[in-house]
Design a binder for these strands. Structure first.
Lengths: 326, 326
DNA sequence: GTGAAAGCGCTAACAC
DNA sequence: GTGTTAGCGCTTTCAC
């Protein structure tokens, strides 16, 4: 492991000069070349740990998400990554599994590694960001809000629930159920409110199911809805994976769109169905990632304006009337 | 940012004692409690950067994969993560986009951050691991081999290609095409060889398509196959996402399984089709991750036995005769 | 433009 | 058991 001292010795300069060469400070052309040659020869790779310790901050951004197996979040991650990479940061991805304890561990790691900042999709509405905030670590909430005064990038979840439900109603469905995510997760609660506004029911209605935002949750919820004495004739799936689960159950039961209405909040990843048979509210996952990374990088750069929340637009794509899912 | 010095002062002990408390070394009960109280009070979080610099290695493992949006790799990542977490390591996920240059950057970061080790799914068969190896950083190849003498966790890709193709032949298909991945990627080349063994053709046959291992690649390849003068009557998709792409095109064209045979190497993520209509060679993605992490952790612990390659079993699940995809 | 030297926060000898 | 102290490799004043 060559160090700047060895490079300096070989190049006949001081360690400070080596450091300057690698940090773009002014160094005479001749010495600069000598340093570069020596570095090459010794296969010198600067030690980031030492630099980070000295500088008190690293060029690493933490992206903390609840489910790495959900394409919504991987797509979001791509957005963060692309933007961060372009600005010279690397991104480390941390998976919380919707578990506040794991989340807390990762946030402590971000602190103790002197990471430049954090993009966080909170696992709950009680995420504890005190430690980060009091240490002045920039942090941007994404997809879900927090109780702290920090930057955020969201979509209008209530509108998403509202427009998905409205589209089904407009297509003639009368008994529209909802499968939403766990209580206490902002996206789940807001989408539920949007649904309730349209159907004129309260949020504890018989046609509401809470599930875990994954495929198996969607399956279980859909199964239970179909077993009701008076089953619904349409369903809004509160996220992409539960949409997949619901569709699996429906196709298994031979209840396909468009007879049985299906609306999904999110994109249907990797589907082989004809997508135009299904109403979708497309969420700008990747763009959310890009936006969050951009805001974070501004903060890292010293921007001190008051906390901002950016709300990105969803896109309703209603099912094409009469199109069969297959 | 409290340091061990401040904690030491408050607790009335030396910095070394504080360090010992946080590293499980023997400290008298009274002082230990004093330290813990002081740390609590100051919201002390140990600085990992300093520890890493001093110790010359961190508790972070890098997992370097070519496509974070591919469920095969996220599933594998879950395996690595679970195992690593259990052993006290955190995992940072790096996405190379199948780009050797990006891969090289991430490997350099792993070195310069003194990371404990690397699990790498190589972007090409020319990945340069010299720098890692000469610095004694443990490294395990996963899914794809390298030209270096290092530990590896693979599946038998030739067998996968062979059994997928055989299953289609056994179901009566006579013109079996193959959509495989890019040249120079071991999994793609080996699956192709397995296919060739069964159909008795060479690997440059008309029915072979090379695509990019993503959905759009599968779509393009399948489209081109269907446009042939004498189109195939079955297809082997070389990975999960190309399987999705192929199925999208087939369902769009009304050529569903079982009339048109489809075999996929990998799992069909989030499908709404009846899976028993499709032949699958299931790959143990998660288990590969667990195994690789286990091997890596052994190496980090100082294990110096010769390089091992573990080959995990695939599972052929032939399509159930007569079952329609929908 | 360049070098000397201090110090980022921690750990691990080493002494007691 | 506990404290003292010397670095880990780098950046950054401060002189020159």
């Amino acid at each position: 492991m060559a160090t700047i001292y060895e490079v300096a010795a070989l190049a006949g300069v001081s360690p400070a000069t080596v450091s300057r060469v690698f940090n773009g400070a002014r160094v005479s052309e001749g010495k600069a070349r000598a340093v570069r040659d020596a570095a090459e020869q010794l296969r010198f790779v600067p030690n980031r740990t030492a630099r980070t310790l000295r500088r008190q901050n690293s060029e690493v951004i933490a992206l903390v998400i609840p489910d790495i197996e959900n394409p919504f979040f991987t797509s979001l991650a791509r957005g963060v990554e692309d933007r961060a990479q372009a600005a010279g940061y690397s991104v480390v991805l941390c998976n919380t599994d919707e578990d506040p304890a794991k989340e807390s561990t990762y946030l402590d790691i971000a602190i103790s590694e002197n990471m430049a900042g954090v993009v966080l999709a909170p696992a709950s509405d009680h995420s504890d960001l005190h430690r980060l905030i009091e240490r002045n670590r920039p942090i941007v909430a994404i997809d879900r809000g927090t109780s702290f005064e920090i930057d955020g990038v969201m979509t209008d979840n209530r509108a998403a629930g509202h427009s998905a439900t409205s589209a089904l109603a407009a297509a003639g469905h009368r008994r529209i159920a909802l499968i939403t995510g766990p209580e206490g997760i902002e996206t789940a609660d807001e989408r539920l409110r949007g649904w309730a506004q349209v159907v004129g029911a309260d949020t504890a209605h018989d046609y509401v199911r809470r599930a875990n935002y994954r495929v198996d949750g969607g399956r279980a919820a859909m199964t239970s809805l179909l077993e009701m004495p008076e089953p619904p004739d349409a369903v809004v799936a509160g996220n992409n994976l539960m949409g997949v689960g619901a569709l699996q159950v429906l196709t298994g039961a031979g209840r396909m769109p468009p007879e049985f209405g299906v609306a999904v909040i999110g994109d249907l990843p990797f589907t082989t169905l004809r997508p135009t048979a299904i109403t979708r509210v497309q969420l700008p996952a990747r763009q959310m990632g890009v936006t969050a990374a951009t805001m974070l990088i501004e903060r890292i750069g010293g921007d001190t304006q008051p906390a901002r929340t950016v709300v990105l637009r969803n896109t309703l794509v209603p099912a094409t009337p009469g199109v069969r899912a297959l």
